[in-house]
Design a protein around this nucleic acid. Structure first.
Lengths: 209, 209
DNA sequence: ATGGGACGGATTGTGTAACAATCCTCGGGT
DNA sequence: ACCCGAGGATTGTTACACAATCCGTCCCAT
């Protein structure tokens, strides 16, 4: 499944994004330009452009003259990332509710897929992907392209974070949890999402070295 | 006041950002790589890197093989930008309130500066800058670097938008309005911000071609 | 006149090679 | 043990070249 793209930079960025989000690279690990240029058979300029775009997504961090590395997250950064997610998802839920788009939306379907992923005991990485899709679906229900795009990159960051956090949400019924969450949002308003994310934040922080 | 910076790309990006936010360039106007390279005496690669970073901030839009132009905003984009602002600022206000940081914060000082800018009948662009600083101060009160950074780039976008919108918030007492807003937030909660921004959205959209 | 194409200049995308600037490591000297 | 300098490794930047794409224009056939 080669990534077709209009430009080499875009294609390389996509390939590197996939690689980073596959977990094959440890947080803090440097990405060397020459090596990547040789491996993907592109010029260093192309590599640099792709790396810069991934750094803009915060999957990588770049320091002048010191190269780019896979992002690592300390506790403060995790908290602030979750605060951002909360901001966007709550607002999105509110907009979706106002437009009456939450009930009949894709969210239920996403939750069903999450349930199936859990039932067939998939790779926890697949379960997590389905979990992320549920939250993305909630945001998408707001009908704002901008909110969706912004939230998607946050989910990417979160995925990277989870990749390198041992045993996070195992031994739970995520699907049922989110069905409840959805009902609460419909009944009590978007604030239900705040506590949902806050819970995941404390769990996330607990299960870290 | 030359911009000193560790790298040429960073310096050029800063210079171009200032230029875009000065209003000297019309929305939709293309930025040609050769011209910029010649004018700033840097290579085209450096120009491209700087343009890419401004595009990531959404001050410019880039299309493959078609160049980058100064961003223009249609009604939908304005709405969605304001939705994002609402999300961040409401969440920030909530966090600031929880931490008790809103009352004794820098926000009052920012409002004072806004009052002074209005009193001495400054350039409306200066007034708007002071106005933006008030909202930034509210977000900063949350104490989240990430929220502040993200909000700052949104304010940049908004500044560009306002630059090319005639006569927006003139003939009003913005400072007093925001003192009231602050009291409402403290008394009634962060939701007061939502209506504040919503109001500005409708005004903004009304005063556009 | 009018709706395609075909042509050609302008602009962007990418590569190669080189060098400057900075970082980093590893010794040697005190 | 600590400072420091030398040298290699890596990034930042440049110049030049060429391919890929876009865009306006002109010509032609209907």
């Amino acid at each position: 499944m080669t990534v077709r793209s209009s430009t080499a930079v875009h294609a390389l960025a996509a390939a590197l994004r996939e690689e980073v989000l596959s977990g094959r690279l440890a947080p803090g690990q440097p990405l060397r330009e020459e090596r990547l240029a040789a491996r993907f058979e592109v010029s260093r300029h192309t590599v640099r452009a792709a790396l810069a775009s991934l750094a803009a997504e915060r999957l990588l961090v770049a320091e002048p003259y010191r190269g780019v590395r896979v992002s690592d997250f300390d506790e403060v950064q995790v908290r602030e990332l979750q605060q951002l997610r909360t901001a966007l998802e709550c607002e999105a839920a509110r907009l979706a509710l106002d437009a009456g788009g939450l009930p009949s939306s894709e969210v239920d379907r996403a939750i069903d897929r999450l349930a199936e992923a859990e039932r067939r005991g998939s790779d926890w990485i697949d379960v997590e992907r389905a979990h992320a899709a549920v939250h993305q679906a909630i945001v998408d229900a707001a009908g704002s392209r901008r909110l969706s795009d912004t939230y998607r990159t946050l989910e990417g960051e979160l995925a990277l974070l989870l990749l390198h956090t041992r045993t996070v949400f195992s031994s739970r019924d995520l699907a049922e949890e989110h069905r409840v969450l959805l009902r609460e949002v419909e009944a009590l308003g978007p604030e239900a999402i705040r506590s949902h994310i806050a819970e995941s934040t404390t769990e996330l922080l607990r299960s870290r070295a």
